[in-house]
Amino acid sequence: MTTPPNDSTQSSAPQSTPADELKAIFLTCLLDSLIALDSGVKVREDSSLMSVKISESALLKVMTLLKQDSRFDFDQLQFHTVLDWPEEQRMECLYLLNSTKKSQELLISVSVSREKPQLPSVSKLWAIAEWQEREVYDMFGITYENHPDLRRIFLDDDWQGFPLRKDYQDEFMLRKPW
């Protein structure tokens, strides 16, 4: 399961800038620490950001490490959003972490099932997650354990369905005529 994370980075080392090398070192260090927590850690390749796939069960542990470990120091949660994969019956939750001290960014991705999606809330670690998780609940229907105030944020409390899911249908949706 554990893929060697940065083969490609190292092989292209001659062309890479010092910043890229630093990034590679950072990623190695990061993956080493994450593998200890979660054996399913993988690097998400098709991303312009440094991004790591982790498993659902290890989310809270990984997040706590990333927030509290002074090597990483990810003190801000930039955004939290979801990619919907209806064919694969899963949703991919993305957390973009940001470190104001190290100006480093990291995208964490977690897959949850589409039927009964549930994740642990990270609002204890980053206060802003309270609203971001409410937004994700509102738009995708993912529920969060231990969230202090989980309810819809933009839509009415009695809204049916979760609009940003790919299979959402609604009579007011704009369809282009071609």
Binding site: P120, E145, R151
Partner: peptide, 17 residues
């Protein structure tokens, strides 16, 4: 880390107020 067993309660604005 211990996972707490409390399940999420989804409330409405009225309940929150």
């Amino acid at each position: 880390m211990v996972t707490v067993e409390i399940k999420t309660k989804i409330s409405s604005l009225d309940e929150r107020i």
